[in-house]
Simulated assay, not measured.
Amino acid sequence: MSAAKRFLPPLLSGALFGGGLSIGGMTDPARVRGFLDLFGAWDPTMAFVMGGAVIVMAIAWRLQARMARPLFGERFALPDRTDLDGQLIAGSALFGIGWGIAGLCPGPAVASLALAPTAVLPFVAAMLIGMIAHHLFPERRRALASQGS
């Protein structure tokens, strides 16, 4: 498979996703924090963005179920995890807290690099440091996970 055939679908998908995040307002931390502020100055516009994403994903799951294989790959890489553990719950809580404080999560942060790189650079740098630390210390993660169970 040529490099163009291999990289073009993910590049176009990423550009479409980033554009959707930008158009939907997900790259505006103030708007995101306004949506998460249920008992203050709540901004419901993100509910429409999320609702649209749920509808698109529901259609995609139905289409995928009828396909033998993906258009640009050998097999589907779908989540198959059905168990919940302390590490997953703690990571989800940490993600949500960070999202609420910063008003950004990884997708919108990366998309924001094209719009306002200096404003989002500290968040992206901290995110990358966290990702690197996650991969550098797998034995520490296992030790912490075993203490929680």
Rank of each mutant, 00 (worst) to 15 (best):
R141W: 09
G51D: 10
A47M: 15
R141Y: 05
I59F: 11
L115T: 02
S112F: 00
W42I: 09
R142C: 02
P138M: 09
G86D: 07
T82F: 10
G91L: 02
D43C: 02
R81A: 05
S13Q: 07
I89D: 12
G98P: 00
S146A: 14
F35M: 12
A133M: 06
M67F: 02
L104A: 03
E74T: 13
F48Q: 10
A77G: 03
A58I: 08
A125S: 07
H134N: 07
D80A: 09
M50V: 15
V120R: 03
I89Q: 08
I129L: 11
V110R: 04
L12G: 08
G18I: 02
S2M: 03
V56A: 15
A109R: 00
W42V: 09
L12Q: 10
A41S: 15
R75V: 07
M127N: 00
F17C: 11
G24M: 03
A125M: 11
G51Q: 12
G107W: 05
K5T: 13
G91H: 00
L88C: 01
G24Q: 08
G24I: 08
D43P: 01
A65N: 08
M26C: 07
A47H: 08
R33A: 03
G40M: 07
F76H: 10
S13E: 03
L94K: 00
A47C: 10
R33E: 01
G100H: 00
G98M: 02
R140I: 02
S13L: 14
A126H: 03
F137D: 04
L8A: 14
F72I: 10
V32Q: 02
A68N: 11
A58T: 13
A143Y: 06
F137I: 01
F95M: 06
A53N: 08
G96I: 01
Q87L: 06
L63D: 11
I132K: 03
P10S: 06
S22D: 12
A102S: 06
R62F: 06
G14F: 14
A68V: 12
I89A: 15
G73Y: 03
A4D: 01
G51E: 13
P70L: 09
L38D: 05
G73S: 13
D37N: 14
T118N: 01
I23R: 09
A145W: 04
P9E: 10
F39I: 13
F72R: 05
A133K: 01
W42S: 13
M57A: 15
F7E: 08
A114R: 05
F76E: 04
M127C: 01
L21K: 06
R6I: 11
D43V: 04
A4T: 14
F39Y: 11
P29A: 10
L128C: 09
F35V: 08
G86S: 14
R141G: 02
G52P: 03
A53G: 13
G24R: 01
D43G: 04
P117A: 05
L128S: 06
L38T: 15
I89E: 00
L144K: 08
A68Y: 00
A109H: 03
V120P: 00
A143W: 08
G34N: 06
R6V: 14
I59G: 12
G14V: 09
S22I: 13
R69N: 01
L71D: 06
V124H: 03
G20N: 09
A93I: 15
R62T: 04
M57P: 02
A68M: 06
R141C: 00
M26V: 02
